[in-house]
Each structure stands twice: as structure tokens, then as C-alpha cells.
């Protein structure tokens, strides 16, 4: 089997040491880091994402594949940064201020990285201005916000308002997610998208970025 296909297959099996070994071999054989990323790692994660959306595999399978993805990415990242190829786009993500639930946000981060995005994870309890300031300083085009509590949902609206106040609402898109949220709430606060789970977040962010 061709080496990049083997990387993809090993990633799908969640075999992180094999992915590390094969990625290293691919670099030694002169494969371009961008090619290893797109045709090996991201190709594998794409299949994983589709299988997950179709309920053919489950969360632990996805997370094992994500760990394998990281094993390969660790080798590629310094090389990609050197060449300025940092992926599909940059996203700032965090759990909004007052909320400490970060499991869902972590899953979205893992899935986005697996899909080839660069993710700046601000963690939890993130103030509205921090989302916006970081997106500006990091030149990110999407802000992802997570909340599990109804009492912290209004923080998301503040972020959208700051973007509007600063005239950035067209250049920095917003996506929200979390158990109490909905498409309707996203529309109500002027967010650009709502994602119902981590896999859906990847789809929606690709739509927002047009990639």
C-alpha cells in the first residue's frame, strides 16, 4: 500500500505509534509535509469524521484517531510552520466566561485540528474581549464559543456585539455550541452558525470559511 494511504489507514485504526513511525518514514523518503498532512493525516480524519457522522464509529474511536493524528502532526508542525503552511485556517475557541465546562470545547478542538485547522484554545471562563482581541492578534477568521449553562449564554451575545462595534463582524465569523443552544439562539444573538456536536462544528466552520 502506498505510504500516505498507510498513514491514513493507521490513523483510522487509532494506532498512534504506527502513524508516528510512518510519518517519519514519509519525511525521510522526501514526501512534502503538506502532502503528508493532506493525503495522509487529514484524509484519514476525513474518513473518521464521516464514519462518526453516520454512526458507524463512536466517540472513543474518533478520539483514538485524533491522538494518532497528533502523533503525526507533532512531526509535521515545525516543518509546516517553516514553510508558512499552517492548515485550512485559524480559529479561536473557548468556553465563555462564567462557565467551566470544557469537555465539549476540547472535543471540537480535537476535531478541528484533525480536519487541518489551526486552533487557538483559550480554555474556559474566557471573557468576551479576550475572544475578540485574540482573534485580531492571531489573525483568526472564526471565533468558536461553548457554553453549557443558560446563565452563561448571554456572554456569546457580548462577543458578537463587540465584533459589530469594532466593524469586524464580516471578517471574523462566530459559531456557538453547547447543550442549551440552538440555531434559533444563534440567529437571535447574530452569531453566524450553531453546531450541535463536534463533527458538525467542523462542517459548519468549513462552510463559514468556504474551504
Amino acid at each position: 500500500m502506498e505510504l500516505l494511504l498507510q498513514i491514513s489507514a493507521s490513523l483510522q485504526q487509532g494506532d498512534d505509534s504506527k502513524v508516528h513511525e510512518l510519518t517519519s518514514l514519509a519525511l525521510q523518503q522526501g514526501h512534502a509535509p503538506e502532502k503528508i498532512l493532506s493525503d495522509g493525516l487529514i484524509a484519514g480524519m476525513d474518513i473518521i469524521g464521516k464514519q462518526f457522522r453516520h454512526h458507524e464509529i463512536f466517540l472513543p474511536d474518533v478520539l483514538m484517531a485524533a491522538k494518532a493524528m497528533n502523533a503525526g502532526l507533532d512531526l509535521l508542525k515545525p516543518l509546516l510552520q517553516e514553510s508558512g503552511q499552517i492548515g485550512l485556517g485559524k480559529i479561536v475557541i473557548g468556553t465563555v466566561s462564567g462557565d467551566l465546562h470544557d469537555l465539549g470545547k476540547n472535543l471540537v478542538t480535537i476535531m478541528l485540528k484533525g480536519a487541518g485547522f489551526e486552533v487557538i484554545d483559550l480554555g474556559k471562563d474566557v471573557k468576551p474581549s479576550t475572544f475578540v482581541d485574540t482573534a485580531i492578534s492571531e489573525n483568526a477568521t472564526v471565533i468558536g464559543m461553548s457554553a453549557l449553562l443558560t446563565t452563561t449564554m448571554p456572554v456569546m451575545k457580548s462577543v458578537v456585539e463587540i465584533l459589530h462595534e469594532r466593524g469586524l463582524a464580516n471578517s471574523i465569523k462566530t459559531i456557538i455550541g453547547g447543550a442549551p443552544l440552538s440555531d434559533e439562539y444563534a440567529r437571535e444573538i447574530g452569531a453566524d452558525a450553531y453546531a450541535y456536536d463536534a463533527a458538525n462544528a467542523v462542517v459548519k466552520i468549513k462552510e463559514l470559511m468556504g474551504v
Binding site: L103, L148, G177
Partner: peptide
Amino acid sequence: TTADFSQSSAG
């Protein structure tokens, strides 16, 4: 409690 994967993974 905490996020329920079956409902949402974005919690």
C-alpha cells in the same frame, strides 16, 4: 452534571 455527548459535544 456535565455535558452529555449524546446531546451535544460542544458543551
